[in-house]
Amino acid sequence: MALASKGIFVVGAKRTPFCKYGGSLRELPASQAFAAAAKDALNSGNLNPTLVDSTVVGNVNFLSQCDGGKTPRYCGIYAGVSIDKPALGVNKACGSGLQALLTGVTEILTGSADVCLTGGTELMSSLPILVRNVRFGTTLGSTYHFEDHIKKRFLDSYTGLSLEKMAENIAVKYNISREMSDDFALKSYLKWKAGQESKHFNDELTSLKVILRKKEVLVDRDELTEVNITSDNMAKSLPLLEDGAVVTSLNSSVPADGAAALVLANEATIKRNNLIPLARVSGWATVGVDPLETGLAAVPAVKKLLQVTDTDIDSVDLFEVNETFAAQVLATVTELKIDDSKVNVNGGALVLGNPVAATGARMAVHLVHHLNHIKAKRAIAVSSCGGGQGVAVMFEAI
């Protein structure tokens, strides 16, 4: 699926700080995290929440969160959307936040909505510890093990491989060394640090108050898992796989908590309410690939997007490529022949962490603000998704 479009605009875009696993957002419901960003996005866009016709929210690990499958519904209600307006949850693994945006775009293009509240939310801290084979009774003398859903590397049923093994295979295929991966991850941290110091995130961040250990805490900046990343501790990090040499915990993204919201509107709504849009959604593409090539699905997604929008790679000023693993971003940049100075210019998931369904929406939020900040024209957010899928979205400055 791919389409070029000119009549859909982003009128508000905000995100919560991304917080480390077990950090400041750990006791906040996923719907409340999204609502905080959504209310700020609506307010910053000068849009009354009652004008929202539909809420579409990415949320992958919904069963572990307090509202379960109802999370997207309450994302809208808690943000002020009228109760009579519907909501939809989207799960496209790491591309969920971007797919939620595209689903909202489609609703507007088909005329079923004028304004859509979209984005993604994920509280990885709420993921469970599992105990298998006890639901229907236990056996005397049997041993039952706790499985940490965060730490356990689950094998994909189709490929029989873990994501870490697939990333290791990509590194081998593209001759990506451990040093190259470590260098990319370190640069992601340094770019985020420079962006933080230059206040590049100020326009996109939503501050919120949470209750943590029975005390009210203000969360107003990103909370990193690793607060002092250096080339020395990068080099000392051990490979994650016994038979691997490249993929480590420091050149891979780690679980995190966060939410990001984008408000979309058509041209008639913009004119009728005198809104000032942040950017235009000018095209998108979604693709499927062999699940063995999961980490490279961003490549055909971008190629298809450029084709449908009649655009060449050099005319795109900014790229946000999901940093699940450093190796797969390096391979993507190589395959697409992207100028690496345009890629993840203020860091990515390698430093911020990866709240799965929120990451794609965070990339989009950052791009629509940074386009205006540096007065650029065009940007693409792209993610490879588990199971062999890719999703890419193009934004243009107004």
Rank of each mutant, 00 (worst) to 15 (best):
L3V: 15
A4I: 13
A13N: 10
K14R: 15
G23A: 11
R26A: 10
L28D: 00
L28Y: 01
Q32M: 07
F34M: 09
D40N: 15
L47H: 07
V52D: 10
T55H: 11
L63H: 11
L63W: 08
Q65F: 08
C66S: 15
G68S: 12
G76W: 13
G80T: 01
G80P: 00
S82N: 06
V90L: 11
N91S: 14
G95V: 12
G97S: 04
G97Y: 07
L98A: 02
V105M: 09
T106D: 05
G111V: 03
T118H: 06
G120F: 10
S125L: 13
S126F: 07
S126N: 15
L127G: 03
I129W: 13
V131G: 14
R132G: 05
N133I: 02
V134H: 03
F136E: 10
L140K: 02
L140S: 01
S142F: 02
H145W: 01
E147A: 04
D148C: 11
I150P: 00
F154I: 08
L155H: 09
S157Y: 15
L161P: 03
M166V: 13
I170Q: 06
A171S: 14
Y174K: 14
Y174R: 13
I176M: 09
R178E: 14
S181A: 15
L190Q: 15
K193V: 10
K199N: 08
H200L: 03
D203C: 00
E204L: 01
E204Q: 05
T206D: 04
D220P: 01
E226N: 09
N228F: 12
T230K: 10
D232M: 09
E242T: 07
A245W: 03
V247Y: 09
A260T: 14
L262T: 12
L262V: 15
V263G: 08
V263Q: 06
N266E: 10
N273Y: 12
L275I: 09
L278E: 02
L278R: 02
V281A: 03
A285L: 01
G288P: 05
V289N: 03
P291M: 05
A297Y: 00
V299H: 01
P300S: 05
A301I: 07
V302Q: 02
L305D: 00
Q307I: 00
V308P: 00
D310G: 00
I313Q: 02
S315C: 09
F319H: 13
E323I: 15
F325N: 14
E335A: 15
D339S: 08
D340K: 07
G347V: 00
G348V: 02
A349G: 07
L350W: 08
V351Q: 09
G353E: 04
A361I: 11
A364F: 11
V365W: 10
L371C: 06
H373I: 06
I374L: 09
K375D: 10
R378N: 08
A381M: 06
V382D: 01
G387A: 08
Q389A: 12
G390R: 12
V391T: 14
V391P: 08
A392P: 10
A397N: 12
